[in-house]
């Protein structure tokens, strides 16, 4: 598939809250088949950019398009139905649902049985549920969470919840995967497993963007990295270029004491 036609692009994205400019005319192009890193200090605007791309925020200026089609004015749900999926920096799982059920929601948009199936044991609804369960179980197994499938989120440590959040995002075979700090709260072995999972997901058709503080993770899996500071890009390029960029060293890597 042509890499450029399947890109998620933004032109001149500007976002402000009550006069405070959070994003200042950003141009981005996240290509399919690549893993793009999005780094920058806290408050730089990374999550806000994700919110603009998914439609949770409406930027005051700028155009966003996926595979050449404009997304402007589409609701988050409509964008989700186009295969644009995200994970949340602050884990957003339902406390009423088991881990498995939370992950099943990730495939809900691919199913459409009617309301009668919700209340009666009709064959289509049962088949749908089994199909959703199977897919969710597969995603959980990929992330080493199969044992926790029937637990409630409150019973799990934060690191596992983070992985459940990611499982929900990847289970529906998205075309665009936006991961907001997927490794936050994970221990070393969990982070390593996650990196492998993300590497396996890399495919010709998938646009993957990872916001991450763990520099080792970003540098080792990303093909390209955008560096955001105060709502502006200060650098963009291959990991090695970005690592050597004096501005980046000053504002981000240099100030990183640990």
């Amino acid at each position: 598939m042509d890499v450029l036609t399947n890109a998620l692009t933004g032109q001149g994205i500007s976002l402000s809250f009550g006069g405070i400019k959070v994003l200042k005319g950003l141009d981005v192009s996240f290509r399919a088949g690549e893993i793009t890193g999005l780094i920058g200090p806290n408050g730089a605007g990374k999550t806000s950019l994700f919110n603009c791309l998914t439609g949770a925020y409406s930027p005051q200026e700028g155009q966003i398009a996926f595979a050449g089609q404009s997304l402007d004015g589409l609701s988050p749900a409509a964008r989700a139905s186009k295969g644009i999926v995200r994970s949340f920096q602050h884990v957003a799982l339902s406390p009423d649902l088991t881990v498995l059920e939370n992950v099943m929601i990730g495939v809900a948009r691919n199913h459409d049985t009617g309301w009668l199936n919700a209340f009666l044991p009709l064959p289509r609804g049962c088949a749908e549920r089994a199909e959703m369960e199977r897919a969710a179980m597969g995603a959980l197994a990929d992330l080493g969470l199969a044992d926790a499938a029937h637990s409630l989120p409150d019973a799990l440590p934060p690191g596992m919840l983070r992985l459940v959040e990611i499982a929900r995002a990847i289970v529906g075979k998205p075309d665009v995967l936006l991961l907001d700090e997927p490794a936050a709260g994970l221990n070393n072995s969990e982070t390593r497993d996650l990196m492998q999972t993300l590497q396996k997901l890399r495919s010709g058709g998938l646009v993957m963007v990872v916001v991450e503080h763990d520099m080792d993770l970003v540098m080792s899996i990303c093909d390209r990295i955008y560096v955001l500071n105060f709502g502006e890009f200060v650098a963009c390029g291959a990991p090695d270029e970005v690592r050597r960029d004096p501005d980046v060293i000053r504002i981000y890597l240099g100030s990183d004491d640990d």
């Binding site: 609701s75 988050p76 749900a77 957003a92 009423d96 929601i105 809900a108 919700a118």
Partner: peptide, 28 residues
């Protein structure tokens, strides 16, 4: 009791506690 395990029921429960997450997964 069926609703609790249906696709609709799951998405409604997510929308209750995390409307933004439900939005992001296709449930307005």
């Amino acid at each position: 009791s069926r609703l609790r395990h249906s696709r609709q029921g799951l998405t409604l429960l997510l929308a209750k506690s995390h409307p933004a997450a439900a939005d992001a997964f296709g449930t307005r």
